[in-house]
């Protein structure tokens, strides 16, 4: 196993301002502290080359986990071993083999051309010139950033900047890449291009990727495995289809009719809603096969069009968070 986390716990202390009318004034003299469990017994393993989506609502403990795995933070208890090292104990050798991309923060130097930043990163990671040249050419080719290299970072658009960020995180050929909301704020075209690149990189070089995001399309198109965290607990760990089945077992048949028709019950379905000339039939495919419903509908209704929908992934996640009362 490349990454092994075992029973990791982490608590934070936060100070709170006293409540009430004079809270602000009181806050000037006393402050209450409260302990918050950011991570509570987190255990998981990740194999080399896996592409893992790590999701959860804001403040669930995602970034704490990533910080522990990248060696920034020491856990209170539990063990974390990555490539046979303990990240926070052997910081330097650990971080030279990982890459981290923050969607919201830049690691490039804001006022100088991208090229200068890359140069400095070469020195920081102490990359041999020949290896650097090869990797550099590879990356500017794959991310098509050769035209941007002479531009100061502050003049780049978000999409352009993100491509440069990704390149800068991969210059030293890390074995693991952490991506923190890499597609936030990007337009549709840039998103697609970025996902393609990541998929490719994972495929070609076997880079393990751990992706935290709120964009479920990222997860759907990239990750074979999803981990869901909430209130510091790992709530789900498995593939995306299983997750869907568990939390969104229902499908919906949307039937448009020529004219309005009275509602009648169909055996085996969960619910039927009629809105104007449209019927929405909710059912569980494991209980009643789709074709038998379609058959009944074609026989009994003046059908114009029929569409079979699965629940939207965003809705599934929202529902899941709700069910787990996150």
């Amino acid at each position: 196993m490349q990454i092994e986390l075992k029973e990791i716990c982490k608590n934070y202390k936060v100070s709170q301002r006293p409540e009430g009318r004079f809270g602000m004034l009181k806050g000037a003299f006393v402050r209450n502290t409260k302990t918050i469990k950011a991570l509570d017994n987190i255990t998981f393993n990740i194999r080399q080359g896996e592409l893992v989506g790590y999701i959860g609502p804001n403040g669930a403990g995602k970034s704490t986990t990533v910080k522990i795995m990248s060696g920034i933070l020491t856990p209170d208890s539990g063990s974390c071993t990555i490539m046979n090292r303990i990240p926070y104990k052997e910081r330097k050798s650990h971080v030279s083999e990982i890459g981290v991309v923050f969607g919201q923060r830049s690691q490039l130097w804001w006022d100088v051309p991208v090229n200068d930043s890359f140069d400095l990163l070469k020195d920081i990671y102490d990359i041999p010139t020949i290896r650097y040249k090869k990797r550099f050419d590879e990356l500017i080719e794959a991310l098509s950033i050769s035209d941007l290299l002479k531009t100061p970072v502050r003049q780049l658009s978000l999409g352009q900047r993100m491509r440069c960020e990704i390149a800068s995180a991969l210059l030293h050929s890390p074995k693991i890449l952490f991506l923190d909301e890499p597609t936030i704020g990007l337009d549709a075209v840039s998103k697609l291009a970025l996902r393609d690149f990541l998929k490719n990189e994972n495929h070609k070089n076997g880079v393990t990727m751990i992706l935290t995001t709120h964009d479920m399309d990222d997860i759907e198109s990239l990750c074979s495995r999803v981990m869901v965290i909430g209130h510091g607990n790992l709530l789900y760990d498995g593939n995306l289809d299983m997750l869907k089945q568990q939390y969104a077992p229902l499908c919906n048949i949307k039937a448009s009719l020529d004219k309005k028709t009275e509602k009648f019950h169909i055996e085996g379905t969960e619910d039927i809603k009629v809105v104007g000339n449209t019927w929405n039939v909710l059912y569980d495919p494991s209980k009643i096969p789709t074709h038998s419903i379609v058959e009944i509908l074609t026989k009994k209704l003046p059908l114009k069009d029929i569409v079979i929908e699965q629940q939207d992934i965003d809705e599934i996640i929202a529902q899941m968070y709700k069910e787990m009362s996150l």
Binding site: S70, R91, K92, S93, V95, S96, I98, R105, I124, D126
Partner: peptide, 12 residues
């Protein structure tokens, strides 16, 4: 600004 995290992420 959290830039210190970035510093800890570099091998020097």
């Amino acid at each position: 600004s959290g830039d210190f995290d970035r510093i800890l992420l570099r091998p020097c």
